[in-house]
């Protein structure tokens, strides 16, 4: 093992958050199928990329600008399963939006998770702006924008990377490339094989990493963050991964990809791979795994119950927070 700073405890914690995200995700789909949650966006398959990157950051201090796929990321960043469920069910106490946004539109001011909209790639420029402030204020923070490969076709992706490179901003552009923008495969999205190739056009490093390996992702993001903190500017990281389920609960992926393709991809399920790795390294034992699975089950049950009982927003609050003051 390289001296990447990952202790056995940290690796177990990583695994815990990956498994937790998968379990929360599974529960969300059940709630949707039961008619209790109107829509679900999944992180199923992306857990290693998200958790590995979160652990490489100064969690709660550095800024992350997630997109709707980033359930595992925000859990690893400190959002609780209760908070996630409050958000899914549109409750008043949802810290993301007080029930105003669709599920998976993350945002948590205290945890330095930036609020996001539904229009893709808007967060890329926000991350550059957060980093611009960090450069001016010299607060030592790094900002990370997370996005799918489809959104790299947006003009704002280009504008953000160019701006960040010109001003050597402490920012990481973290692409979770799962090969599909809803139904459109990457080959119809772009001619290049790798999103990382685009980094050359801005004069910044472009790094490709196996998104199913949380340790590799951790190492790459750590290096990019160190580089950013040293004042050497932005990095584009491309984590190659796969989405195991449809884009959302309103999607049916059988229309655009074969079951064989999905089955093949599942052979490299990051959760299974990491579990095997940890067992082989004798970090994770069967007993520990069992205890962890029980813990996760309890946490997910608790979060579901808690959120279902929580109050819905009062209609009188509809017009709150349009302005801070008038």
């Amino acid at each position: 093992m390289s001296d990447n700073g990952l202790t056995p405890e940290l690796m177990l914690d990583m695994y815990y958050h990956m498994a937790l995200a998968r379990a929360v995700d599974d529960r969300m789909w059940i709630l949707n199928r039961q008619g209790r949650a109107p829509v679900v966006y999944t992180s199923n398959g992306h857990e290693a990329a998200q958790v590995g990157s979160a652990f490489a950051l100064n969690r709660g201090e550095d800024w992350i600008c997630p997109y709707y796929r980033d359930l595992a990321l925000v859990l690893a960043y400190g959002m609780t399963p209760r908070e996630v469920m409050l958000h899914l069910l549109g409750r008043a106490d949802d810290p993301n939006s007080g029930g105003r946004q669709m599920p998976a539109h993350w945002g948590h001011a205290k945890l330095h998770i930036l609020t996001g909209g539904s229009v893709v790639a808007t967060q890329d420029v926000h991350a550059a702006g957060l980093a611009l402030a960090s450069k001016v204020l010299k607060d030592g923070r790094v900002s990370v924008a997370y996005f799918g490969e489809g959104s790299t076709s947006q003009g704002e992706f280009h504008e953000a990377l160019n701006f960040a490179a010109v001003h050597k901003l402490p920012v990481i552009f973290f692409n979770e490339n799962n090969g599909y923008a809803i139904s459109v495969p990457a080959r119809k999205q772009m001619v290049v094989q790798d999103v990382a190739a685009r980094a050359q056009g801005y004069g910044m490093p472009g790094v490709i990493v196996d998104g199913n390996d949380p340790i590799k992702v951790y190492e790459v993001v750590k290096e990019a963050a160190d580089r950013a903190r040293r004042g050497e500017g932005p990095t584009l990281v491309e984590a190659k991964t796969y989405r195991f389920v449809p884009h959302s609960s309103d999607d049916d992926d059988r229309a655009y990809r074969s079951r064989e393709e999905v089955a093949e991809a599942k052979k490299r399920d990051p959760l299974t791979l990491f579990e095997a790795y940890l067992k082989k390294a004798e970090i994770l034992t069967d007993d520990k795994l069992k205890a962890m699975q029980q813990q996760i089950k309890d946490v997910v049950n608790d979060a579901t119950e808690y959120a279902e009982k929580a109050a819905l927003p009062d209609p009188a609050t509809l017009t709150d927070h349009v302005y801070g003051s008038m």
Binding site: L114, H126, A128, G129, A133, S134, E156
Partner: peptide
């Protein structure tokens, strides 16, 4: 002096404002 890109000018301003400027 920013690059010639208005979405970035406003978008980065949003980010910079949220981070304390």
């Amino acid at each position: 002096d920013s690059p010639l890109a208005e979405a970035a000018i406003v978008g980065t301003a949003i980010g910079a404002a949220i981070n304390g400027l």
